[in-house]
Design a protein around this nucleic acid. Structure first.
Lengths: 179, 179
DNA sequence: CAACTTGTTCAATTCAAAATGAACTTTTTG
DNA sequence: CAAAAAGTTCATTTTGAATTGAACAAGTTG
């Protein structure tokens, strides 16, 4: 009786892998998140996965996602990895008896989601931006012509200000969304 | 003497359309912005255009961009359109005599850039999100089973809170970056 | 008005990112 | 230990978005 539980878990699918034994609400919600993650520059499959978890009242396994969404095991695995790294899903405590697969449920607190996104997607870019600015500054210093050099320095300085503003704002943003 | 001026303008190119008579600083800066706009989900060409304008001490015409960056007239035109709509680029007052083409210079105040991005890219998504949530709410109301309906309403309500938080934060963000 | 110049539009093409699926590792269990 | 289940990895394929380029305004000039 290895696979008895996932039928009970969220109660929405049979064994066949047709991609659409989803009810209207589930589809709408998935669409919502597909669009949502696109805005954030994340792949559609991640929106589908998170969306389905978000409308489901119980946790789902990788297999559930594969069957219900009709996506490949590869996509599901990678998608879950990313969502885990963002802190957008967590492993659900396994209720079951001799249950070996892991079940996932969504993190639904905006604070946590925003925090994860900032940590994983924004900060790294700010950091790499910072180091690119250092290189730019070095290159600007090499310029012979004084006028051109002054102008270049001005612009590099401007970039630096932008990044600083960004850094300053992030924690505030996080705090404001965490109310 | 229709094209005498653009040589003087920013002083960096001959008539030939080789894509790289760019100096190291220009290339580095363009790379910086190519990466930057990718994060924002905008196409590479837009990063190239804005980046080149940003390092140039004088305004540039569409033709200048085409020649210096080695991109098509189509890309340059579309890119400029987007940048204009974002308020990231403005037409420069034409100094010249009988000059017919328009020259562009970058907006370099973070406030303006962020403002344009919010107005053009974020707000529309928040709005369409809002209306999708209304549809979701309607669908949720249709659910027969009381428990499932209650859960669905909870989740839809949660989404609504997210969007509200987003709306609340945007103006604050804008103010903070506009210091 | 005919020959240019400047810029836009949009169907066709190109290309990078995402999805697939088969091979692989690890763990379980009879 | 063999067979099966759960999940990961990664080379190939797919697909959607960006880019191209040719056709098309619109405006200018002799």
């Amino acid at each position: 009786m290895t696979q008895s539980s996932h039928e009970i878990q969220a109660g929405q699918h049979a064994i066949q892998d047709g991609l659409d034994e989803l009810d209207p609400l589930q589809r709408q919600m998935i669409d919502f998140f597909v669009d949502g993650v696109k805005v954030l520059g994340l792949p559609r499959s991640i929106g589908e996965i998170y969306g389905l978890l978000f409308v489901s009242s119980g946790p789902l396994s990788l297999d559930d996602l594969v069957h219900l969404l009709g996506i490949s095991k590869g996509s599901a695995s990678q998608g879950l990895r990313t969502l885990r790294s963002l802190g957008a899903v967590r492993e659900a405590a396994v209720n079951g008896n001799g249950e070996r697969r892991t079940y996932y449920e969504p993190a639904v607190e905006l604070k946590r989601l925003v925090g994860g996104f900032i940590r994983e997607q924004i900060r790294p870019h700010l950091d790499s931006g910072q180091s690119k600015i250092r290189l730019l500054a070095a290159t600007a210093r090499e310029i012979k012509d004084p006028d051109r050099r002054r102008f270049a320095n001005e612009r590099v300085e401007r970039l630096d200000q932008w990044l600083c503003s960004g850094r300053r704002v992030l924690p505030i943003l996080q705090k404001l969304l965490g109310q």
